[in-house]
Design a protein around this nucleic acid. Structure first.
Lengths: 248, 248
DNA sequence: CGGCACCGTTCCGCGATGTGGAACAGGTGA
DNA sequence: TCACCTGTTCCACATCGCGGAACGGTGCCG
């Protein structure tokens, strides 16, 4: 496997600081590097925010950049860790893939998915960002927005992904009224042909919606006839359990 | 300020992955690097554990090494963030420096300190590790250990820092009995001449001691005559408030 | 007060390292 | 089957990182 010496050395330097702040000479000794090399690596890492100089100019310590970089994976992974068992239950209960997403700008960002046991299923959207108005997870987030934030969203571009995508603001507002009433949202073939999904919002301790749970499947079998409400309530219940866990 | 191009590029690559997994070609485009350069940087970062390849060999995502490196600062900093306001109150209330430490092997590791308003004060021990038997924070941690763990500690080397340091195991055991009874521990000039300190344990939700709060000061004025118990109880109360916050 | 030790920082000649274009193998979809 | 795109690897080359030496600053000690 390829290697870049400077990256290896940079991590050796970072590792020496994992136990607490050190001066240049100490870092050099522990990383087995010449002092000028250690100084140069520390200066470069400091430019990136990966280390910072404590109390003036004497000692270096790990900087916030590492936390910032990993906080995305940390925070999402902790929501993922809490939610995942519930997604597993939901996938088993519904026979379709269950997923998790969080708000990110004008989109929802898919951060986890449990696949359906059915070999015919919708692909994994994890990592993808999709405009809120076109997916069920997005609609439940939109339904939770304060009026000003919702109007700001509706004033922006509303992309039509398929012939079924609802892009007229007044129709979206009406729809969100129903979403608030029902506690879940259905979308059929609006983001992509052949896919239907139902989502419910996850609220944190302050009642603020931090994400959504959804189940999606191929439209030819999902939802089964007469099952839309039952499925919606199952997703709503799973979202409620995840929210409770967040609050405990 | 000095710079190392490879480190800058490595962070550019890591930054592209902060939003989610990407393939080599995507990373190269977002980091504005040639594909072979991006591939080599990714391979080297993978060797360090800073990135890992998701699902086989297709996409890269941020690896656990960043979290592991920063978890020391993250976990301690979150305890520090919770505890700090209470240390400020305690320092004001007692007129002496208040500090925070966590267990680390045979030592306590000092991770925060609020200085005394008095210009004459004990230096900041933050970052230092000191053997438990020689400091008040260590004694409260020792008092919380299960018998086997305590005996294992007492079977190890017990350094005598000053003529006052208690190093005879039976005398330490008796002392710990008193610490458990009182809920706090006093140490006078056992780690360093001229310094006295009082500490109380911080317990988490399961009752396990995760750290200690202490106040220390120059022995000539601390504790003031007849104030030892009052000071001990104040520190114990602050530790209790921190523990409650950890549990909420 | 002066000498000494040690620190962090900076410089610069040098050659080792990283660069990046090109080529390759494999996978995918029309 | 073919076109396209991916990730991977190679290698000539020159840029970059190296590291020894020197410097200025600070603190300690006699």
């Amino acid at each position: 496997m390829s290697r870049v010496q400077s990256i290896e050395r940079a991590f050796a330097v970072l590792t020496t600081l994992a136990d607490g702040p050190l001066g240049v000479t100490d870092v050099a000794e522990r990383a087995r590097l010449p002092k000028s090399t250690a100084a140069r690596l520390l200066a470069s890492l400091a430019r990136e925010g990966a280390v910072e100089q404590a109390d003036g100019r004497s000692e270096y310590r790990l900087g916030r950049r590492l936390l910032t970089l990993s906080s995305g994976i940390g925070a999402s992974r902790s929501l993922v860790a809490i939610a995942h068992p519930f997604l597993v239950e939901l996938a088993e209960q519904t026979g379709e893939a269950a997923g998790l997403s969080v708000l990110d700008g004008r989109t929802v960002h898919y951060i986890d998915q449990v696949d359906s046991p059915n070999p015919v299923q919708v692909r994994d959207w994890t990592g993808t960002r999709i405009s809120m108005h076109a997916v069920s997870s997005g609609l439940v987030v939109l339904a939770s927005l304060k009026p000003a934030a919702l109007e700001a969203y509706l004033a922006g571009p509303l992309e039509r992904f398929t012939e079924h995508t609802v892009v007229i603001p007044s129709q979206i507002r009406d729809r969100l009224w129903n979403v608030r009433r029902d506690g879940y949202a259905w979308v059929r073939e609006e983001f992509a042909l052949g896919i239907s999904s139902v989502a419910a919002p996850i609220a944190d301790a302050s009642g603020e919606v931090v994400g959504a749970v959804h189940v999606h499947g191929p439209s030819y079998r999902f939802p089964a006839a007469g099952q839309a409400d039952t499925l919606g309530e199952a997703v709503e219940a799973a979202a409620g359990r995840i929210g409770s866990r967040l609050r405990s």
